[in-house]
C-alpha cells in the first residue's frame, strides 16, 4: 500500500511517502503564506521523486498547525499524535518525545504502543522555539548552523531569560553590547531554550528513552545544552524534522480516519447508573 503523510507547520511543510511500509520519498519546503498551495506543490514534487502518480496513493493524512488546510488529505491528526507515531516507528523504546519546531515546542509522554498519554506545550511568552534561535542568529550576524557550531566551543554559563521572547532578545542585545564572545552568547541562548524546553518536558515527566525531533533537533549546540540541562541521554533521529510527516504516514497506513462512530472511553466501561472507578 502507498500512503503519504504531510506535516504543515508554521514555517515549513514536510512530506513522507511510504510504500508497503518502507520510505519511498520525502521532501521539505518553506510554506510561505499560501500554505495549502505549498503543500500541494511539495506533494506533487515528492510523488515525482518517488516515481508515483497521485492516484496510486491509497491514503493521505495531514498534521501540523495548518494540517486542516490540506484539502486533499483523507484525514488530519493532531501533531502530537503524529509525533508519537513517527517516534514509535523509529524508536519503539521511546517514552518521551520532545518536538521543537519553528513556532511551538512540545513534550509528549507516549505509551509502549506509541499512543499519547500526556502532553505539554510551551505557552505564551516563551522563547523556546526555532524562530527565536533564528532571530538571535540574525542579531549575532551568523547563520543558525554557525551558531550551533560555535556554541559548542563555549564553557561559560550566562543565565538568560527564556520565558519572554522580548526580554530574551533584549538580553542578547545587552550581551552583544557588553562585548561578550559570540560563542558564549550562542551557548547562553541554547542553554536558555534548553531550560525552557526541559521545564515543559518535566510537566509530562522525563522518562527514557527520550527522543528529540523537529527542526531544532538539527542544532547540535541546542541538543548539547538540552542533554546537560536534563542530565539524561537523548536520541535524535536522522532527519528529525520529518518525523511528524512520517507519523502521519504511519497513521495513514494503519487506517486512521476521522469517522463519526460511537466509541467508549479507554479503560473504563460506562454502565448506566454505576461506575466501576
Amino acid at each position: 500500500m502507498i500512503v503519504a503523510g504531510i506535516d504543515i507547520g508554521g514555517k515549513n511543510v514536510h512530506v513522507v511517502i511510504l510504500k508497503d511500509g518502507a520510505l519511498a520519498a520525502q521532501g521539505a519546503a518553506a510554506t510561505g503564506i499560501q500554505k495549502a498551495e505549498a503543500a500541494e506543490r511539495l506533494y506533487e514534487e515528492t510523488l515525482r521523486k518517488a516515481g508515483l502518480k497521485r492516484g496510486e496513493v491509497g491514503r493521505v493524512v495531514a498534521t501540523g498547525s495548518a494540517g486542516k488546510r490540506v484539502a486533499f488529505a483523507d484525514a488530519c491528526i493532531a501533531d502530537a499524535a503524529a509525533d508519537a507515531r513517527g517516534v514509535h516507528r523509529l524508536f519503539p523504546s521511546a517514552r518521551t518525545v520532545i518536538d521543537i519546531g519553528a513556532e511551538e515546542g512540545r513534550a509528549i509522554k507516549i505509551s509502549p504502543e506509541g499512543k499519547v498519554l500526556d502532553f505539554a506545550i510551551n505557552e505564551k511568552c516563551a522563547a523556546g522555539t526555532g524562530t527565536f534561535v533564528e532571530a538571535m542568529a540574525i542579531a549575532l550576524e551568523i547563520s543558525v548552523e554557525e551558531m550551533a557550531a560555535i556554541s559548542l566551543k563555549s564553557n561559560t554559563s550566562i543565565p538568560m531569560n527564556a520565558q519572554c521572547a522580548v526580554f530574551g532578545e533584549s538580553e542578547v542585545v545587552s550581551l552583544i553590547h557588553q562585548n561578550v564572545e559570540k560563542q558564549d552568547i550562542a551557548k547562553a541562548v541554547h542553554d536558555a531554550i534548553a531550560g525552557r524546553i526541559a521545564s515543559v518536558a518535566r510537566i509530562v515527566g522525563l522518562e527514557k528513552d527520550i527522543a528529540v525531533i523537529g527542526g531544532m533537533a538539527k542544532n547540535d549546540g541546542f541538543i548539547d545544552s538540552l542533554r546537560k540541562e536534563m542530565a539524561m541521554d537523548i536520541i535524535v533521529p536522522n532527519d528529525p524534522d520529518f518525523v511528524g510527516a512520517l507519523g502521519a504516514a504511519e497513521a495513514a497506513a494503519k487506517g486512521v480516519l476521522e469517522e463519526k462512530i460511537a466509541a467508549k472511553v479507554v479503560g473504563q466501561e460506562i454502565v448506566e447508573g454505576e461506575k466501576t472507578s
Partner: peptide, 11 residues
C-alpha cells in the same frame, strides 16, 4: 523585572 534583566536595555 524578571529573574534576569536586560541590563543593556535598562541602561
Amino acid at each position: 523585572f524578571e529573574v534576569t534583566v536586560p541590563v543593556g536595555q535598562f541602561r
